[in-house]
Simulated scan of single mutants.
Amino acid sequence: MSEIQKNAPLISQLLATWIKGENSESYTLANYANAAAILFQNMTAVNWAGFYLYHAETNTLALGPFLGKPATALIAPDKGVVGNAFTAQKTIVVPDVHAFSGHIVCDVDSNAEIVIPITTANGQKIGVLDIDSTQLNRFSKQEQADLEHFVQTLIQYIEVS
Rank of each mutant, 00 (worst) to 15 (best):
I75G: 02
N111H: 08
F86R: 01
T120C: 14
A99R: 10
A71I: 09
E159Q: 13
A36S: 15
I114R: 02
M43N: 03
G123H: 15
N7V: 07
S26L: 15
M43I: 11
I4W: 04
F51H: 07
P9T: 12
N31M: 00
A62H: 14
I104T: 09
V105L: 06
F139N: 02
T17Y: 08
D107Y: 06
V108Q: 14
I155S: 00
G80M: 03
E159P: 07
N122G: 13
I131V: 15
V160E: 12
A45K: 11
V94Q: 00
A49R: 00
W18N: 12
L61W: 06
N84W: 02
A85G: 05
I11G: 00
K141V: 12
T134I: 12
V108L: 13
T72G: 04
N34S: 09
Q89D: 13
A33D: 13
A35G: 07
G83F: 00
A99E: 14
H149D: 10
A145L: 15
L61D: 04
I4T: 02
L74I: 11
I155F: 02
T87K: 00
V82R: 00
T17R: 09
K69Y: 05
A121M: 14
I131R: 02
Q13D: 11
A33P: 04
G80N: 05
